[in-house]
Lab assay of single mutants.
Amino acid sequence: GSVVKEKKEKALIEVRPYVEYYNELKALVSKISSSVNDLEEAIVVLREEEKKASEPFKTDIRILLDFLES
C-alpha cells in the first residue's frame, strides 16, 4: 500500500520536468491508484490508458511508465 503510493508519488515528482500534462497525469495516477492493489496492476492499467491516449499525453504516460518500471 504505502510503498506503492510512495513509488508513484516519487515517480510523479521525477517526471514532472519532462511531461507536458502534469496535472492530467497526476489525476490519472490518482484515479488508477484507487482501483488497483499494487504497482504491477497500476502499470498494466497505465499501459491500457497509453494505448487510448493521443499525443502528447501518450508520451507523458510513457515517460511515467519508464520511471515506474525502472
Score class of each variant (00 low, 15 high):
Phe57Gln: 03
Phe57Ser: 02
Asn37Ser: 12
Leu12Trp: 03
Glu24Lys: 07
Val36Arg: 04
Ser70Met: 12
Ser2Arg: 05
Leu28Val: 03
Leu28Cys: 02
Pro17Glu: 14
Ser35Cys: 06
Tyr22Pro: 02
Ile63Pro: 00
Glu9Tyr: 05
Ile13His: 08
Ile32Glu: 03
Tyr21Phe: 11
Arg47Leu: 08
Asn37Phe: 07
Ile61Gly: 00
Glu9Ala: 05
Ser70Ala: 11
Val15Leu: 11
Leu39Val: 06
Ile63Asn: 02
Ile61Thr: 00
Phe67Ile: 06
Tyr21Leu: 12
Lys7Glu: 11
Val29Thr: 03
Ile32Gly: 03
Lys10Asn: 08
Lys26His: 11
Glu9Met: 10
Ser34Leu: 12
Val19Ile: 12
Lys8Trp: 15
Leu39Met: 14
Glu6Ile: 09
Leu46Arg: 00
Lys7Cys: 15
Leu12Cys: 08
Glu14Leu: 03
Leu68Gly: 00
Val19Arg: 00
Ser2Asp: 14
Gly1Ala: 12
Ser35Asp: 10
Leu65Met: 06
Ser54Asp: 11
Lys58Tyr: 01
Ala11Leu: 11
Val29His: 02
Phe57Ile: 03
Lys26Gly: 04
Lys51Phe: 10
Glu40Cys: 08
Phe67Pro: 00
Tyr18Lys: 15
Ile63Lys: 04
Leu68Cys: 12
Ile43Ala: 04
Ile61Glu: 00
Leu65Ala: 11
Gly1Met: 01
Ile32Leu: 04
Leu65Cys: 11
Glu50Tyr: 10
Glu55His: 06
Ser54Cys: 12
Ile13Trp: 02
Glu6Phe: 01
Pro56Leu: 04
Lys52Gly: 07
Glu49Thr: 05
Ser33Pro: 06
Ser35Met: 13
Glu50Thr: 06
Glu20Ser: 10
Ser34His: 08
Leu25Phe: 01
Glu20Val: 14
Val45Arg: 14
Ser70Tyr: 09
Ser70His: 12
Glu48Gln: 11
Gly1Cys: 14
Lys7Trp: 15
Ser54Arg: 07
Glu14Ser: 11
Lys51Ile: 11
Val19Trp: 08
Leu25Gly: 00
Ala11His: 03
Glu69Asn: 10
Lys58Gln: 05
Lys51Glu: 10
Lys10Phe: 07
Gly1Tyr: 00
Val36Phe: 05
Ser54Asn: 10
Ala42Glu: 08
Lys7Met: 15
Val45His: 11
Glu9Cys: 15
Ser2Cys: 14
Lys31Asn: 12
Glu14Pro: 02
Val15Gln: 02
Glu9Lys: 04
Glu20Ile: 13
Asp38Glu: 08
Leu12Asn: 01
Ile61Val: 04
Asp60Met: 13
Phe67Cys: 04
Glu49Gln: 05
Glu55Leu: 07
Ser30Ala: 11
Ser34Lys: 08
Ser35Ile: 13
Thr59Gly: 11
Ser34Cys: 06
Ser34Trp: 06
Arg16Gly: 15
Val44Leu: 12
Phe67Trp: 12
Asn37His: 11
Glu9Leu: 12
Val4Trp: 11
Phe67Gly: 02
Ser70Cys: 10
